[in-house]
Design a protein around this nucleic acid. Sequence first.
RNA 1: GGCCCCAUCGUCUAGUGGUUUAGGACAUCACCCUCUCAAGGUGGAGGCACGGGUUCGACUCCCGUUGGGGCUACCA
Length: 442
Amino acid sequence: MSVKVRFAPSPTGFLHIGSARTALFNWLFARHEGGQFFLRIEDTDKERSKQEFLEEILDSLKWLGFDWDGELVFQSKRTERYRAIANELIAKGLAYNEGEAVRFRVPKQGKVGFEDLLHGRIEFDLDQHGSLAEDLVIFKSDGSPTYNFAVVCDDAEMGITHVIRGDDHIMNTPKQVPLYDALGYKKPVFCHIPLILGEDRSRMSKRHGATSIREYRQAGFLPDAVVNYLSLLGWSPGNNQEIIGREELIKKFDLKRVLKTGAVFNKEKLEWLNAQYVRQLTPQALADLLLPYVQAAGYSIEGPGKGRAWYERLVALFQERVFTLTQFTDLAGFFFDDKISIPETAVQEVFKDARLAETFAKYADALQGLADFGAPAVEERSRALMKELGMSGKEFIHPCRVAVTGKTVSPGFFETVSLIGKERAVERLRAASALLKTRTPA
RNA sequence: GGCCCCAUCGUCUAGUGGUUUAGGACAUCACCCUCUCAAGGUGGAGGCACGGGUUCGACUCCCGUUGGGGCUACCA
């Protein structure tokens, strides 16, 4: 029998990082086994369920690349079916009405237990556990089914073979097991996976920072990196491999290797992993991914001395310097700007020598005379000038960098000058020269 | 409170009785490279929660303690 699993989100919020990990393990397991991965929308809570959340969740799942099989199953559309099943139970004397609500008779003593794929046998002593020995409400007075009832009906009727869910559901399972038996359903394999934790080791929530997939998407993370990182939370391939692509993940994923301990979410490692994926991209692909961010920042890749080829060269320069997509415009903004302003602190610290005004002017002239403005030509001419002026690389480059970029840090200086272009580089050098002259009257 | 789950460096993890002076990764520190920042290279510091067993031998098996977490709804 082929494997059938499901991911069952409630459209009451954005896709949580922990839910995404649960979805991932279900998806990886299904794909690894050549089985099916279904999506069921648990929207029985009419008050809290929102269409926008549903769309958001589906969007996030698609972005992560978790393709699902078949049609979406909406619990809100199955009320009649749940009602019919409840009536069967009533007819058999296994459930009864209590006002408008329906309760399912549960054993009041003895033990209820189940086999968990990860934890082994988990058993509950009904004498010791009050809430389990109370007849379970399966229909609420408002006419809607309860969570535990709908879940059992659906999992059974959808033919789910493996219920893979967070271990916060462990206490729900003993409520569901008697239902399977009463309904004559075959029980699925249960597998309760550990939760994703915040720094303080409590379940990851808002107060720990960004918790939704959408936030990580907006923050410039790559879906492959997020998937890779999430897969490493509570699972590992067994060797020391950390960078594992999607296909390889499917190939290597083994539910039985999932750990039982909760894992603390570590954003630094996610960032590192994201950087690895950013570097694997071709400059062209990265340039495409970055374009929306460039535009959002109000920059254009068109204009004098710019264009697509220029833009790709620029992107290549930052490919090893950005962790997330959003960092690009922060770091590379000065390449797009027509005018730059030099921070006072940089002026104070780097423009100490009054002779720099002269240096900038000479450098501007030298660059002005260049026909070829490629990085090698710029470097050759620049080094010639340094020699001429008797300046070392450091003495020359640092001040010039500030003059040309307005920053104390940048990619390699000659590449930077080359990409800023002759016109703007010369202009900025002259401006810096003028600024220095007004600052340091001889 | 009751019930349940869990326990290897700060964090993610490898480790399934001897192959371990416990390996890797992120972070951190130092050094190298170097025009800055990254990247890269080299090296360092850092862990089996504790106590009992079992065994010739325990990080690995059992029990207890401690610690952490989860659940205790006519929410999902």
